[in-house]
Amino acid sequence: MKPAPFEYYAPTSVAETVALLEQHGPEAKLLAGGQSLVPLLNMRLARPTVVVDVGRVAGLDYVREEDGALAIGAMTSQRTIERSELVEQRLPLLRAATRLVGHPQIRNRGTVGGSIAHADPAAEYPAVALALDAQMRVAGPGGERVIEAADFFVTYLTTALEPSDVLTEVRMPLLPGGAGWSIVEIARRHGDFALAGAVVTLSVDSGSIKDPRVVLFGVGATPIRVREAEERLAGESPSEALFTEAGKLVSEVIDEPLSDIHATAEFRRHLAGVMAQRGLAEAAGRVA
């Protein structure tokens, strides 16, 4: 199928972008790499009357370390992240997550900001953002502001961004030295959206687990942080039995998961626990 007609603008600055979005209101749609939006346009499932392409906005393509975080320009391609030495050395979790995003041809066009703003609950980046307490820097009609990851993902394909907001930067805090991390997922085929996945980070201090984070993706309407499991883990000594127990707890406490042709809610509930357990084991194994 072919897209329905729309007007197209290619602003070159953030301010111009915000102004265009303000002018056209909710009928306008922001186009970043287009790897999610253009298929929807082609199927006429998304029908904006105005498309604002931020591909020519200067200065949104960078990765740098600032104040204990990686500051990533929203239009930085996933491929850039995958190949960035800085990311590999300072935040290998992000690199590992990137390798699970689609395929190289998708990552060449797909952007960090596009993925996070699209907020597909089965996508990897939103889960990583939530696990790391990332901060989203947003430009809007009222100026710049920062939205915490915990407040950003509202529901299925919906974020705290207002119609005239532009996500400009994602700040991903670095993990503390020696912390372990993991991203695991299960998909029908390599590169498909996950049926369920988990991002796990933790530290071990004097033999006990400190600051555990367990975030699920592909399970609910947003990435889900499982605090019950984190509380169960904190202060405990890492062990296979503990991780199995934490996995079971994850399966028990989460809200009714999504159900689709690839996995029933019951199966997703189970997989969520398995992914959490496997993620915990892998993260613990990476603790230095």
Binding site: M43, R188, R189, H190, G191, D192, F193, I261, H262
Partner: peptide
């Protein structure tokens, strides 16, 4: 992998290659 799925109302649920899964090199 492959399966054409219809729901109980005879609506096809495998209308794209996102849902009808062809094997890849993996």
């Amino acid at each position: 992998l492959e399966e054409y799925v219809y729901d109980e109302n005879a609506q096809p649920l495998t209308a794209s290659f996102m849902d009808y899964l062809l094997p890849t090199i993996h």
